[in-house]
């Protein structure tokens, strides 16, 4: 039943002068139901207290613990070691700034994304505390919830070759985020306004269609569907719109 496993973990702390990137091996005795959350904490508590990694909810809800597990991105908290070979590698996600070892700065990247794509409801209506909510069909609510389920773990960005080589590309998560507002009747943005945000190479038209994002999304957000939706809407908007007015004055 129990076997010995070896975790080959990427080590590098940019804040320690003289530290260099390397792979370090840790041996553990595996037991039934062991997740990478359990394994990494055991290593930190019993073998190496300097090992850096991020966990928050440990239930695949918060998106903190994404890393390259044997080369593929995934959430460490829900990865059972029994589904991995007896020796495997753990690497931090690419694209994002390295904080140390397996810990990367997704927070700053996603903050920039929200601001760049203006990911909030744009409306001219004033909130009236005495009025009833605006009616909406339950279907629409569920359609909005589908892309809204993204937990911003960064797996889609890390697996995307375009995002890896072009730092301005907003990735599947960014386009998906915009799609959530695009289908929300409460957002009053016009096609032109959306086009300004994602109707370009850094947005909807930058995707090459490799679909690693769709295949590796730990939340199974239907990324292909949402990406294509935004691409079609933006193409339709672009072909329809007379955008001469968009020149800078």
């Amino acid at each position: 039943m129990s076997r010995n496993i070896t975790l080959s973990i990427f080590r590098y702390n940019p804040n320690i002068p003289g530290d260099t990137p390397r792979m370090q091996d840790y041996k553990l005795e595996e037991y039934s139901g062991m997740t990478l959350f359990v394994a990494l904490n055991e290593i930190r508590e019993k073998q190496d207290p300097t090992l850096m990694f991020d966990f928050v909810c440990r239930a695949a809800i918060c998106g903190s613990c994404a890393m390259l597990i044997n080369g593929r991105p995934g959430l460490a908290c829900k990865t059972l070691t029994k589904n991995l070979p007896s020796r495997f590698t753990l690497m931090p996600l690419p694209v994002f700034k390295l904080i140390g070892d397996l810990s990367v700065d997704t927070g700053t990247w996603f903050r920039n994304l929200q601001v760049r794509t203006e990911s909030w409801i744009h409306t001219n209506k004033k909130f009236d505390p005495n009025a009833l909510e605006v009616r909406m069909s339950n279907e629409t609510a569920e359609a909005i919830y589908e892309p809204e389920r993204c937990i911003e773990c960064g797996c889609c960005v890390a697996t995307c070759i375009t995002a890896n080589i072009r730092e301005d590309f907003i990735g599947a998560t960014g386009i998906n985020r915009v799609s959530r507002f695009l289908i929300d009747p409460r957002d009053e943005r016009t096609d032109r306004e959306y086009f300004e945000v994602v109707g370009n190479e850094d947005g909807a038209f930058g995707c090459v269609g490799l679909m690693a994002c769709d295949d590796y999304c730990p939340m199974e957000v239907p990324l292909q569907k949402q990406l294509a939706l935004v691409r079609r809407k933006m193409a339709a908007a672009g072909l329809k719109l007379d955008l001469k007015g968009m020149k800078i004055s």
Partner: peptide, 18 residues
């Protein structure tokens, strides 16, 4: 109740009555 409606105004996709 006002908070719920304000959250709705901000964009929470509350499930609706069918």
């Amino acid at each position: 109740p006002i908070m719920i409606r304000q959250l709705d105004y901000w964009g929470v996709p509350w499930n609706r009555v069918v």
